[in-house]
């Protein structure tokens, strides 16, 4: 019985991760095609073509890189995404890992991801990657605080740090209505943790590709997979924390979760394409002067709402 449950949990997470990565890539291409106005019909297999090409491409070698970190960092980043996805409840009874401190655990995944992204910039022992890694850390330290406060705000009405309890507490009213500031702030965190769109300071164009400028072949492929997986896992957490998770009429829980997750994925990808990139120092000011006070406000709001 427990073995079956374990296998079901592992299988669900891995399958969801695979489907999620494909969906993120497909949505990204679809949004890009919509913006540029190019036809999107031949695009459905394109992510797989790209993956196959990268898998067979040769590895790039720089002068005295930190080899183990270079290869390990993307794999561990992918593992972190899988761990995050495992926290998400699919229905009332089926939660792969129902940790009593699930919300805090997601809060731990974000700084650990920051460490790995620093290693992404550090490991290749080259200028542009290192600059990218450094810039990302300053970004990471500023968005993690916002994420913590928003997540505590979500835990307050549920009176629990368990993700399943947070979803359960939204059967009447979703948190996105109850705490209107929460989801927008959390979406910014999502762009940060998967270094996507305007918050992609690590692989940025203005740094000649940043950390990606020395990556090729399978390392590049793994980072691409990892980013997409992290975006998907983040979206699933956001859907559970703010959009009621598996709650919904007529359809079964897992379908609702998938629909809401893909909605968040679409929002994030669209934000990534439509919001212009800000310079890192400007983003730091925005993060500390505007976003962090807003996160305080969100938490105070949640506290007052919980008291009433």
């Amino acid at each position: 019985m427990t073995i079956t449950l374990l296998l079901a949990s592992v299988g669900t997470v891995l399958l969801a991760l695979l489907v999620g990565v494909y969906c993120v890539t497909a949505v990204d291409r679809a949004v890009a095609a919509r913006i540029t106005g190019e036809p999107r019909s031949p695009l459905l297999l394109a992510p797989l073509h790209t993956a196959a090409r990268l898998w067979h491409a040769p590895h790039n070698e720089t002068e005295t890189p930190d080899r183990s970190a270079w290869r390990l960092a993307p794999v561990l980043y992918l593992v972190l995404a899988a761990m995050g996805l495992a926290l998400v409840p699919w229905s009332r009874d089926f939660v792969p890992v129902d940790l009593t401190t699930g919300i805090v655990f997601w809060g731990a995944i974000e700084p650990l991801a920051t460490v790995l992204i620093f290693l992404k910039g550090w490991a290749s022992n080259a200028h542009f990657p290192l600059l990218g890694g450094y810039r990302y850390v300053s970004l990471g330290l500023s968005y993690i605080l916002v994420s913590m406060f928003v997540l505590i705000g979500v835990a307050l009405p549920a009176e629990s740090l368990q993700v399943s309890a947070v979803v359960e507490a939204q059967s009447e009213l979703w948190n996105v209505v109850r705490q209107p500031l929460g989801l927008p702030l959390f979406l910014i965190v999502g762009l940060g943790v998967s270094f996507w769109g305007p918050l992609n300071f690590v692989d940025a164009e203005d740094l000649h590709g940043g950390a990606a400028s020395e990556e090729a072949g399978r390392v590049q492929l793994l980072w691409g997979l990892g980013r997409a997986a992290m975006l998907f896992a983040f979206s699933a957490i956001a859907a559970s924390a703010f959009l009621g998770g598996w709650h919904g009429p007529w359809l079964p829980g897992p379908v609702w979760l998938m629909v809401k997750t893909l909605a968040v994925v679409w929002m994030l990808v669209a934000l990534g394409h439509y919001v212009p990139r800000v310079s890192p120092e400007r983003f730091l000011t925005i993060a500390w002067v505007i976003l962090l006070p807003l996160a305080f406000l969100d938490l105070a709001w949640a506290g007052v709402e919980a008291l009433l």
Binding site: L99, T100, T101, V104, F105, G107, A108, E110, P111, L112, T114, V115, F118, Y134, V137, G140, L141, I144, L161
Partner: peptide, 20 residues
Amino acid sequence: VYLGVALFFMMAVEMMVMAL
């Protein structure tokens, strides 16, 4: 359960700063 997970995020941030 709380202390273990708290150690994860505390130390991830601390060691990141340490490395810098």
